[in-house]
Design a protein around this nucleic acid. Sequence first.
DNA 1: TATGTGACCACCT
DNA 2: CAGGTGGCCACAT
Length: 117
Amino acid sequence: MENQQNLSPKARIWQVVGMIPQGQVCSYGKVADLAGLPGRARYVSRALKEAPQQLTLPWHRVVNSQGKVSLPKDSEPYREQMSRLRTEGVVVNQGKIDLSKYGWQPDLMTLLMALPF
DNA sequence: TATGTGACCACCT
DNA sequence: CAGGTGGCCACAT
């Protein structure tokens, strides 16, 4: 894995999202932090929307800090995300995911490799 | 140049 | 636990 300082902000975000393991989720804010963009959660959502489909990112593993899917409940994307999550075994109760159980926390090694020096 | 808008968040009531 | 507030920042108007 190479130094993420060289990558564009969007690319760093995509890379971080790509690290989220199956069956786990991560919040927009945390993704931003890990990408070296503290406090820029909203930018993560935009980066995901603009992500080339070619990357086949696990975008569905990104939820908000309350453990909820940040999409209109009546939309197709919402159903898509819910479906993918449940397929991976993530339990969603009342539209909420228990982050203490499914929240992703990168191991130390991964963290050291990802953070800027 | 100014204003409104988000697939957000931390903090305070 | 539910709202309200201020902060955030790229983008569209």
